[in-house]
Design a protein around this nucleic acid. Sequence first.
DNA 1: ACAAAAGTGTTCGTCTTACACCCATGA
DNA 2: TCATGGGTGTAAGACGAACACTTTTGT
Lengths: 237, 237
Amino acid sequence: MNKRRRASASPSFCYTYPRPAVATDIAVFTLRDGAPHVLLIKRGGGPFAGSWALPGGFLAEAETLDECAKRELAEETGLTATVLEQCAIFSAPGRDPRGRVISVAYGALVPSGTVSLRAATDAADAAWFPLDVLPPLAFDHAEILGSVRAHVAARVEQDLTLLFAFLADPEHFTLRELHLIYEAVTGKSYDRANFRRRIRQDSLPITPLGETGVRTAHESGVRHRPAQYYRIVEGAG
Amino acid sequence: MNKRRRASASPSFCYTYPRPAVATDIAVFTLRDGAPHVLLIKRGGGPFAGSWALPGGFLAEAETLDECAKRELAEETGLTATVLEQCAIFSAPGRDPRGRVISVAYGALVPSGTVSLRAATDAADAAWFPLDVLPPLAFDHAEILGSVRAHVAARVEQDLTLLFAFLADPEHFTLRELHLIYEAVTGKSYDRANFRRRIRQDSLPITPLGETGVRTAHESGVRHRPAQYYRIVEGAG
DNA sequence: ACAAAAGTGTTCGTCTTACACCCATGA
DNA sequence: TCATGGGTGTAAGACGAACACTTTTGT
């Protein structure tokens, strides 16, 4: 009674011992209006139909878990994440009413201002939700989301380059943008001077724009001292 | 060709889509003569027969991954770990020649001086190996072991209570023992005074022995100032 | 001149590190 | 009294938080 995935299809993959289904679930974060949001999908069918859930899906035959997460994210939302990291595993029997399913939770970061949400295969709808105003979630996805949030917050503190994932244009940004992103992600305010100092001594791979010829390397049109633009340098150093 | 676990048994668990087998592999660490050792098992049959490998096994129907790791450890070695933590997942297709197997890697810590290695079900032999003199390992277990080592080292730095897992007697130990354990685990030497200070301000849950009546609370027979004995207090504070 | 944010410097307290010193015991 | 390790104190340097100050633009 608990071994089938689709009731009408004929089973064709047989094993000597029972095996769990393995899936990935992805918490996709972005910043909208300076506040962290997560991407949720409205389930079209199956258990929890009509509920909101994390995007995700089952592991295919010839892919790693990382590849599975990447593929599912693209299929269900059309997004490609700059950062996609494994965070936790959920293996409690009974967490999925259809049968034994093990979920590997991923955290994904996509640039601020990302809007394009493609119509999904299995999903009736997809939308961004602010982290502090979440609807009830399907399965144990509330727990998964909480776990991924904590993981990502801790990772950002120890590796500021993760902030780059939220930049709308990695080739053209100010330190103020980075600073605001940092404050939004951590939820705390952080002294501006100290943030700059920290960036320097962590030697983040960024470099000021416009050392060549004409100076288009600063903001314009702002009614204050214009900020230096920076870009990310890929190579180490 | 790649769907069977045992060639002769008749398959009886069938699914609509292919499923990977899910297993746990456990790196069990202890201290012997002040040096970190890991427990390896000599494979009795199957691929890599005769090779050394990490203990582990397949996930059963009604257990979580944590329970699986605990059970496999007990079955194959007779040990019960004080600390047993999930560290990483290995999901590359082809990492097991028998077919698709996903391994969840665990790190386990058992008390120094642990000797009893029970005869294992599937294992021909079991033995402790010093971490710097390892034999060739089966499958991708060398990679797994390396990953778990790094994970454990990082965890110990941020939570000194993990050191307690190596104590032969948690109700009767000196700070020197803890200090030696710390140095063995991290591989670095650490100033004695500073180690004590750190323990105090991290407010580790330990308390000196022998505040009541007779003073059996110190070492004796040593030809130097006898050390205070401590014990672990379970409750917080 | 004023507001606003960029960009820099300075101070202060805390934590880390290294090292020095006395204490208790057995040989 | 000497060697050995327990136990504590202290000074120097590294690091982070808080804040003051100057600079550059638009209005």
